[in-house]
Design a protein around this nucleic acid. Structure first.
Lengths: 314, 314
DNA sequence: TGTTGTTACGGAAAACGTAAATATT
DNA sequence: AATATTTACGTTTTCCGTAACAACA
């Protein structure tokens, strides 16, 4: 039994039971993987993989159990690396943040400069993706923390914290009928909104689920003419006249975004919560913990400390 | 980094930072250990051991953190072995039960025959020891389960279950004054008891702590003339006239133990709870789970199932 | 001075990559 | 036929034990 076998097993599973792909990703030879896996199986006396002749199709029942334990070991190895790095080079390293475009563009800029100042030697990476991809990246140790409004809270294997709350706003030109309604009546209703073509986030992004939910709860069918992952793209198309936009309020800035105007619609779609997530059981380096503290509201302190101590048992 | 280094690190710590001893226990050479440890340290870039010149004295701060993670990995390796063995040879293996003499002599015989019948291929080992030793054995994976009345519940790293309840009895000859009091008044009191020399369990065994507690709560100083770990030994000396015995009621059998008589004193020393413990996070083989079920009262079923699923996450 | 940890060295074992063979779709 | 896995084999590296050396207490 050795660590190599554990790495190989993990990778073969991740690459959908394709030894060749796994070998490529690990920069080694396919026969090496094959042999290591077979030796592992024979040492345990248990068949890990479901085989149809020579092709590997999936995990056997025992294999799944073995894989679960092996995954935990791999995780601890990763923790060992991070821990020692934290001692060896306390303030240097790499922080990979997986987040949606909205987070990267509007939420993170409020924190990153402060973080840079405190940890000038830490290399930052922003990996943008869909909430599902973000969750996946954090689970696979490809990212240290994930940030998104959707998905994170309910993904098993992640622990998440509320980061900040936000609401949706409508964006449109000043001469749009909805803006007139807003000016005269102080608010727009769902009924008003549904009459016009809408440009908003792609499914599974930034509270889009909530938007769909609210419309369907009222038996309304919104005409979503364009969906994007990116608030800036949405605003661009709104400016072009494709429809009214629904975006996160944080993503609207009257100065930069003129001639567009914003109309609050928090009362329609409710409060959204952007969350931050880390992998359960992951060792968090000091600068990662600091980053999380910076991103998290004070009120969350208790939950935060609990989380941090849970992941860094001292 | 490799598993060997992890095994070595664990053993060096267990052997009080003596490389030579660790090497002997692992049936390998001292230089091998030395080299492996140094390579491990250099790969992590962290000094694990506190060194005074060449002597190793203890763990550094980072070393303690590393050791904690390494311990978890070693534990998972152990789990892997047990898991695969459970699949490969479902009903064969070895069950090591660490317990006190009282458990081995009086509680286990009620269950072992049934267990043997169900798992004839499982080799049983009873390791007797003090509650502290029992806890230690379970923590070190030298025993699969531990059983004792004391210590187990409050040992960190163990999870324990109530097994059965029992009370103390007095044992003495029929012509002893205390027996007369019992026959005439139906019960003896602490005041009666304290007048006579007592033979009972050694400190830290079978509810001895509770006995001491009760006497000191009443500002009484019992005259304990002999303390033993073993009910049979106690009875022997009672028979010889050294004093009255206080033992577990399960350890008294009127037939075998005549001419001694028993006097219930549960009302004085309260109800004791024998507990069974396993190492937290340990994978429990099927026959271990079955054994635990056999040893545990039905009422504990909920706690039991929770425990079992926690240790065998499927 | 005995005990304990490190360094040096050499034989044995295993790890790994290339090439070839075999099976699957 | 093309893709994927296993077998074969030879080189290279690592492992590990003995022996010698160095330092603590």
């Amino acid at each position: 039994m050795n660590l190599q076998q554990f790495r190989f097993l993990r990778e073969v599973i991740r690459r959908n039971f394709n030894l060749t792909q796994a070998a490529n990703h690990l920069h080694t030879s396919q026969p090496g993987i094959s042999k290591a896996i077979m030796e592992f199986e024979s040492e345990l006396g248990v068949q890990i993989f479901e085989r149809h002749g020579k092709r590997i199709r999936g995990l056997t029942r025992p294999g799944a159990d073995v894989a679960k334990i092996v995954e935990r070991i791999n995780q601890e190895i990763e923790n060992l690396r991070r821990l020692s790095e934290d001692y060896a080079q306390h303030d240097a390293g790499r922080l990979v943040i997986a987040c949606t475009h909205t987070q990267a563009r509007y939420a993170l800029p409020k924190v990153i400069p402060m973080f840079r100042q405190q940890f000038p030697k830490v290399h930052l990476s922003l990996a943008e993706g869909s909430p599902t991809q973000i969750a996946e990246m954090v689970l696979n140790d490809e990212a240290d923390v994930g940030m998104a409004t959707e998905t994170l809270a309910k993904t098993p294997g992640l622990v998440s914290l509320a980061c900040y709350h936000w609401e949706h706003v409508l964006v449109c030109h000043a001469d749009h009928p909805l803006y007139a309604i807003y000016r005269s009546e102080g608010a727009v209703g769902l009924q008003d909104l549904v009459c016009y073509p809408i440009v908003t986030y792609d499914t599974a992004f930034s509270g889009r689920r909530q938007i769909d939910q609210v419309f369907s709860d009222h038996d309304l069918k919104p005409d979503i003419v364009l969906a994007a992952v990116d608030s800036d793209v949405i605003k661009t198309y709104v400016d072009l006249g494709l429809g009214v936009g629904i975006i996160a309020s944080v993503a609207f800035d009257p100065l930069h975004d003129s001639p567009l105007c914003s109309v609050p619609v928090g009362h329609l779609f409710g409060r959204q919560t952007a969350r931050l997530a880390v992998r359960q059981g992951a060792f968090l380096r000091d600068f990662v913990r600091t980053f999380i503290r910076m991103m998290t509201r004070q009120e969350e302190t208790d939950a935060l400390n609990k989380l941090l101590s849970q992941n860094n048992p001292d």
